[in-house]
Amino acid sequence: MAVEMKVAAIALDAASRLPIVILRDLHDRRALPIWIGKAEANAILQALEGQKSPRPMTHDLMAGLCKEWDLHVEKIVIHSLQNNTFYAIITTRRGKLRKEIDSRPSDAIALALRTATPIWAMEEVIAEASIPVDQEADEAEREAFRDFLDTLNPNDFISNK
């Protein structure tokens, strides 16, 4: 069984300094934290805050392609957790043709926010990985993450290997 979720916050893991997207069920009883990359966190945060880039970012491009090709993004489902990695599916429809596309949850969430698409998580995933809800911490975590983003520059995303 799947549970509809909403993006509650973007937070920063205090130990690893990695961003986390926090999903909550619609009744605010359960929260599902998913560790994500910096670029995806920024894309999700931009969508949450209604910010528009001067040029389309990757998820804006995906949403634009869907619109231009009359491809409806019906839902995303975070369907499993394996070896500490979450897995998601993007369900699309064009006419009567329906396709499921494998996706990282962070990319699926960023696309869902841009296309007003419902976000779902399987009950088994929530049961395994959910945390107690603490609504007071959300705004402080969001502010800490904004401060962290302000310190980033493009070289932070370049690998020196």
Rank of each mutant, 00 (worst) to 15 (best):
residue 8 A to Y: 03
residue 92 T to Y: 09
residue 34 I to W: 01
residue 23 L to R: 00
residue 161 K to C: 10
residue 21 V to M: 04
residue 118 P to S: 09
residue 53 S to A: 15
residue 135 Q to G: 08
residue 158 I to R: 15
residue 34 I to S: 01
residue 98 R to E: 15
residue 42 N to K: 15
residue 146 R to M: 13
residue 132 P to A: 04
residue 63 A to F: 07
residue 31 A to P: 05
residue 137 A to F: 00
residue 15 A to E: 12
residue 14 A to D: 08
residue 129 A to D: 01
residue 67 K to E: 10
residue 11 A to M: 06
residue 104 R to P: 07
residue 68 E to M: 11
residue 43 A to G: 08
residue 156 D to A: 08
residue 53 S to W: 12
residue 84 N to Y: 11
residue 78 I to V: 15
residue 55 R to L: 11
residue 35 W to L: 04
residue 93 R to S: 10
residue 5 M to S: 05
residue 57 M to L: 15
residue 90 I to Q: 02
residue 36 I to M: 08
residue 80 S to N: 14
residue 137 A to S: 13
residue 159 S to Y: 14
residue 139 E to Y: 03
residue 148 F to D: 07
residue 55 R to F: 10
residue 34 I to K: 04
residue 48 L to C: 09
residue 155 N to A: 15
residue 4 E to K: 07
residue 153 N to F: 12
residue 147 D to R: 14
residue 16 S to G: 01
residue 53 S to V: 05
residue 134 D to K: 00
residue 8 A to E: 03
residue 17 R to F: 11
residue 157 F to L: 11
residue 37 G to V: 03
residue 152 L to P: 05
residue 38 K to A: 13
residue 4 E to C: 05
residue 124 E to T: 11
residue 100 E to W: 04
residue 81 L to R: 03
residue 69 W to H: 15
residue 149 L to H: 05
residue 26 L to F: 00
residue 137 A to M: 10
residue 9 A to N: 03
residue 63 A to R: 07
residue 140 A to E: 08
residue 154 P to Q: 04
residue 53 S to Q: 10
residue 97 L to K: 14
residue 119 I to K: 03
residue 150 D to Y: 06
residue 103 S to P: 05
residue 127 A to W: 04
residue 105 P to T: 07
residue 34 I to N: 00
residue 75 K to C: 10
residue 37 G to W: 02
residue 39 A to T: 11
residue 144 A to C: 09
residue 122 M to Y: 07
residue 67 K to S: 10
residue 110 A to H: 08
residue 10 I to A: 05
residue 112 A to Q: 02
residue 64 G to S: 09
residue 16 S to V: 03
residue 136 E to P: 01
residue 57 M to K: 04
residue 18 L to C: 13
residue 74 E to C: 08
residue 113 L to N: 09
residue 126 I to W: 01
residue 140 A to Y: 07
residue 32 L to Q: 01
residue 70 D to N: 15
residue 161 K to Y: 14
residue 151 T to W: 06
residue 20 I to L: 11
residue 98 R to P: 01
residue 156 D to Q: 08
residue 59 H to A: 13
residue 86 F to A: 01
residue 101 I to P: 01
residue 151 T to E: 14
residue 20 I to W: 00
residue 9 A to R: 00
residue 132 P to I: 04
residue 154 P to G: 02
residue 127 A to C: 09
residue 122 M to E: 15
residue 49 E to D: 13
residue 17 R to S: 13
residue 111 L to P: 00
residue 80 S to W: 09
residue 113 L to E: 09
residue 114 R to I: 01
residue 2 A to P: 13
residue 75 K to W: 06
residue 105 P to V: 02
residue 52 K to N: 06
residue 99 K to F: 06
residue 34 I to V: 12
residue 46 Q to I: 06
residue 2 A to R: 14
residue 96 K to I: 11
residue 111 L to H: 05
residue 14 A to S: 12
residue 79 H to D: 14
residue 68 E to S: 15
residue 73 V to C: 08
residue 27 H to F: 09
residue 69 W to K: 13
residue 87 Y to C: 07
residue 65 L to V: 15
residue 90 I to D: 02
residue 161 K to V: 13
residue 45 L to H: 05
residue 94 R to A: 15
